[in-house]
């Protein structure tokens, strides 16, 4: 109910369908984070999953780059940095550059072969990528919002600007 990510959607789709699969799932998620300017225990996530016969990391990078360029603007620098997630291998985190700092806005990676085995796909035949992006962080970058808590304040001086 108060889920920490929307990945369950991906599993349900894979259990009921054969590749190719393209899914986007959006939703409210909850994490035990102490609130500060860039963290809030409730936020929104946008997850994507693509499984097909010839999916590579180049596809993943291309899709995220296209998204970043279109949503944040062509002049926004982004980078892919190795990380660790249990369901992807290799895993990366995606950062954008803002105010002299790299800010993480999502995690991504190539779907771990164990995930494919668990849903009955053959990892030798299919490959895929998955990503999960933080909607708030992206929205903050786009609108130059400095404090994530403003989004949930209901403060008219904030709301009336949009």
């Amino acid at each position: 109910m108060l889920r920490s990510q929307t990945s369950t959607v991906q599993i349900r789709v894979m259990e009921n369908k054969q590749p190719p699969i393209r899914v986007i799932s959006l939703g409210r998620v909850y994490r035990p984070d102490a609130p500060d300017a860039t963290h809030f225990p409730m936020f929104h996530q946008m997850e994507g999953l693509y499984v097909d016969t010839n999916v590579t990391m180049a596809n993943l990078k291309t899709v995220l780059r296209i998204f970043a360029t279109n949503y944040l603007g062509g002049d926004v620098e982004i980078r892919f940095r190795p990380s660790f997630f249990p369901f992807t291998e290799p895993s990366v985190e995606v950062d954008f550059y803002w105010d002299g700092k790299w800010i993480e806005f999502g995690g991504a990676g190539m779907v771990d072969p164990n995930v494919f085995r668990a849903v009955g796909y053959d990892p030798e035949k299919v490959s895929g990528f998955a990503f999960g992006l933080g909607v708030e962080r992206l929205c903050m970058r786009r609108h130059d919002i400095k404090d994530i808590r403003d989004l949930y304040s209901g403060d008219m001086r904030f709301l009336s600007q949009f």
């Binding site: 393209r22 693509y50 097909d52 999916v55 590579t56 990391m57 180049a58 596809n59 990078k61 291309t62 899709v63 780059r65 296209i66 980078r79 892919f80 940095r81 190795p82 291998e89 290799p90 895993s91 990366v92 190539m110 771990d112 072969p113």
Partner: peptide, 22 residues
């Protein structure tokens, strides 16, 4: 898959091109 990740992260993700739309 674990070894592929090792090769990828040291070789550099920046070497993977971004010209493959799906």
């Amino acid at each position: 898959a674990d070894l592929i990740e090792e090769v990828a992260r040291v070789h550099g993700y920046e070497k993977i091109p971004e010209d493959s739309p799906i």
